[in-house]
């Protein structure tokens, strides 16, 4: 029996600003199929949170149902977690976020969980600009229920049995752009060099950050003819460019050639740097992103990387003017401010 993870780690593991090693960000051992793309995404989340020196207890990870939605058990074992019902992660995050805006919210969902049963929830979370990172682990199928085509499966993509999918696939990144998401990216579970900086940027983004991560299901959708297999994705991948996330305290050491690079400074002083391959992309312009997604798709290429980013998004709390403190920290004094205040309110309506 080897299905056990030893407690020893590399003796020279680096520590982050909090003095933690990556081990402090791990979760339990995954029970997903060996080789599932979702596990790579979990590893990328661990690495991103480690590198950002996030205090694990300041994170809440939430999910719906599916293999993808199981993954929060496999990372950030010292964080808060909520495994909700199928497709209902967005409403649970909304509630949690309203009650305590001080936590970092990481929502993990699948293409089934988001694009089918949870579609209604998803669009409203985007529309409201909930301050969260929303990750779809997109394998084009319902992995947990044995691989039925999902709503993101490309038309013509072949299932393991050989049947071609007759329906047009939903492009969740394009949809998020249309619905006003303030940060939209696409990546591939097999490309950590791109995924980790994107995750870091998304977590730091003070609004709704959406990442559609193509994540092959090795068991049910990694067959020839599938457009979500490791091989197909690798062969058809086209990155918008390389992304660097430079934390506030760090010096920018890489030099970028002008014209093809774009830089975004975040509210906390950290910098996201995009070295573009296609200079038609303007990451501050929704139209540019939508056009390019279409353009690459028509060449049967998958455009990955940072697609759009709003530098100064307005999140839900700001829009509806909530109190700044977490709701649970409000005491009777604040919640029942007394007769005088009530009289004033009443008077304002007269």
């Amino acid at each position: 029996m080897t299905y056990l993870r030893p407690n020893f780690r590399h003796p020279d593991l680096p520590t982050n600003e909090l003095g933690y090693t990556k081990k402090n960000y791990e979760g339990s051992l995954s029970t997903l199929c060996a080789g599932c793309g979702h596990d790579s995404i979990s590893a990328a989340i661990v690495q991103a949170c480690f590198e950002l020196s996030i205090e694990p207890h300041k994170v809440a990870k939430l999910s719906g149902i599916g293999c993808s939605s199981k993954t929060p058990t496999y990372f950030l074992g010292n964080s808060h977690g909520f495994n909700s019902v199928h497709g209902r992660m967005p409403s649970v995050v909304t509630g949690a976020n309203m009650a305590n805006r001080d936590l970092i919210y990481i929502g993990v969902s699948g293409d089934g969980d988001t694009a089918s049963i949870g579609m209604g929830q998803f669009v409203h979370a985007v529309r409201r600009s909930l301050n969260m990172t929303y990750i779809v682990e997109n394998n084009g199928c319902y992995g947990l229920t044995k691989g039925q085509d999902s709503a993101t499966a490309d038309v013509g993509s072949k299932s393991k049995k050989g049947d071609a999918n007759p329906f047009e696939g939903i492009d969740l990144a394009a949809l998020a752009l249309q619905l006003g998401a303030s940060f939209v990216a696409r990546s591939f579970s097999g490309d950590k060099e791109q995924l980790i900086p994107l995750l870091k940027a998304a977590i730091k983004h003070p609004g709704f950050a959406f990442i559609d991560v193509i994540s092959p299901c090795v068991t049910f959708n990694n067959n020839p003819g599938s457009t979500k297999s490791y091989e197909f994705v690798r062969d058809h991948l086209q990155a918008t460019g390389t992304v660097d996330f430079v934390p506030m305290r760090k010096e920018i050491t890489t030099s970028y050639s002008a014209g093809t690079s774009q830089e975004v400074t975040l509210h906390d002083g950290s910098v996201i740097h995009l070295h573009k391959i296609d200079d038609k992309l303007d990451i501050h312009n929704r139209r540019s992103a939508l056009d390019l997604i279409q353009e690459y798709k028509s060449e049967s290429k998958i455009l990955t990387g940072l697609l759009y980013m709003d530098k100064e998004p307005t999140d839900l709390h700001e829009t509806i003017g909530t109190v700044h403190k977490p709701l649970r920290s409000l005491q009777e004094k604040e919640l029942c401010p007394g007769n005088n205040v009530l009289q004033n309110i009443n008077a304002s309506f007269r």
Binding site: R5, C36, G37, D39, S40, A43, G190
Partner: peptide, 14 residues
């Protein structure tokens, strides 16, 4: 090898 990274991700000692 299909380069899925699973081994690299799981290895406890990098």
């Amino acid at each position: 090898c299909i380069e899925c990274d699973a081994c690299a991700d799981i290895c406890p000692t990098e």
